[in-house]
Design a protein around this nucleic acid. Sequence first.
DNA 1: CGGAATCCATATGGATACTG
DNA 2: CAGTATCCATATGGATTCCG
Lengths: 113, 113
Amino acid sequence: MQNFHRDGICPIRDVLSRLGDKWSLLVLVSLQTNGVMRFGDLQRSIGDVSQRMLTVTLRTLEADGIVERKAYAEVPPRVEYRLTDRGRSLMPCLNGLVEWAQRHADGILENRK
Amino acid sequence: MQNFHRDGICPIRDVLSRLGDKWSLLVLVSLQTNGVMRFGDLQRSIGDVSQRMLTVTLRTLEADGIVERKAYAEVPPRVEYRLTDRGRSLMPCLNGLVEWAQRHADGILENRK
DNA sequence: CGGAATCCATATGGATACTG
DNA sequence: CAGTATCCATATGGATTCCG
């Protein structure tokens, strides 16, 4: 088998664990659907994410080059977020997983009982 | 956009957050590659997972019907793990993500600095 | 061999208050 | 508007010990 371990870090696990956190997927799907969004747009779109967690999530996605942040020097401030090329290249994989989850959600929840 | 929130639970987030934990992906890839495996096989294959975490991970995957556990009443005990049909149906999606992560790992790590 | 049980450290996430 | 800064609760994961 492929050796994902033992050589220090595991990029796969690293990437997956970031996307599997509580908010990243929601942010990415929302950006994919709506294109360019402001901070407040994202917060309303997701609905129940706190300001802090949305900021933390966006900073992480930005650090990984998956989301781009563009701030305008205006008052009141305006900040726009959008997917980068790398982010867009990720979405087909994510969409596949989302579809799988939707197809199997009922069965899985049933299974747990 | 699709409404992943507000209606109580979000099956997508639920499923994704489980797979994004520290060990599930490694277990699934290992089972996909090696077929039927015993507990000790899995532990050696992954390399640095503790007994406890491997147990916890396998129990969760089993509860979701992604992995099947078969115990034989022998001494010393023998327990086999394998992917279920549902688990196998998940692997193409996961493999897509793994490939994406491998292709972009260098760029992402570079980006973070 | 394949766990279960316990204890503990750290990581993750939420609530609240404040700010350029 | 789009954050930062604190503080705190819980979740996750590791080390160790014990067991059929």
